[in-house]
Amino acid sequence: MATLRRDLLIAVRHRGELANPLMFFLMVITMVPLGISPEAAVLSALAPGMIWVVALLATLLSLDSLFRSDFEDGALEQLLMSPQPLYFQVLAKVFVHWLITGVPLTLMAPVLGVMLSLPSAGYWPLILSLLIGTATLSLIGAIGAALTVALRKGGLLLSLIIMPLYVPVLIFGASGVRSAIEGFPYLGTMAVLGAFLALAIVLAPLAAAGALRISING
C-alpha cells in the first residue's frame, strides 16, 4: 500500500507525463480519416482494430518509465532489499501504471470511436475489452520494463521483447468488438481476455520480480 500511495503521488506530481499516451492516442486516431478515407463505411470497418492497435502502442509508450525513475534514484535497490515480497511491490506499481494509462485510454476510446464512425453495438464491448486488455498489457509490459531497466536506451529492446506477447491480447480484443458489431456473441472472447488477465496477474509480477533481480544484481 505504501508503494501504491507513493507511485500515485509521483504520478500526480508529473501530470505532463500522464498526458503523453493520451495525446498520442488522440493524435493518431485523428489522423486516420485524413490518411485513409473520411467515408463512414471505411472508418467503421477499421475502427475496432485501429483503436486497439493505437491503445496498445500508447501503453507501450509509457512502459519504459515503469521502473526507470526508481532505478535512477536508488529506490529500486531498496525495494529489492525490503522484507516485503517483491511480487506485491511490482503488482502495486503495475496497478498504478494501469490506473494512469489504461483507464484513461479506455475512457477516451468511445469518443474516438465516434470519430471513426464505430457502430453503436461496438461501444460497450470496446470499453470492456480495453478495460481488461490494458490491464493485461501493463502486466506483460512490466516484464520487459524490468529486463531493460538497467539499459540506458532500452526502449527499442523493450518493444522487441514485449510486442510478440501483446499479439494474442490484440487479436482477441479487436475480434471481440468486431463480433459485437456483426451481431455475433462476444462474451466468450471477453472470457478469454479475462483468462489472459488472471494468468498475467499470477505470473507476470513473478517474472518481473525475477527480471529486476537479474537487471540490478547482474
Rank of each mutant, 00 (worst) to 15 (best):
L8Y: 04
I10W: 12
A11V: 04
R15W: 15
G16D: 02
A19G: 05
L22Y: 01
M27L: 14
T30W: 11
I36A: 12
A40R: 13
A47N: 03
G49I: 03
I51E: 03
L56K: 04
A58D: 00
A58V: 01
A58P: 00
T59V: 14
L60E: 06
S69C: 06
F71V: 10
A75M: 14
L80G: 09
P83A: 13
P85G: 11
V90L: 10
V90Y: 07
T106S: 01
T106M: 00
L107P: 00
A109L: 00
P110A: 03
V111Q: 06
V111Y: 11
V114W: 09
M115Q: 08
L116Q: 00
S117L: 00
P125Y: 03
S129F: 05
L131Y: 10
G133V: 01
I140C: 09
I143C: 10
A146S: 08
V149C: 03
L157P: 02
P164C: 09
V167G: 09
L170W: 13
I171H: 06
F172K: 12
A174H: 02
S175L: 04
G176R: 06
A180T: 00
P185G: 13
L187G: 07
V192I: 15
A195V: 15
F196Q: 09
A198W: 13
L199R: 14
A209E: 08
I216D: 02
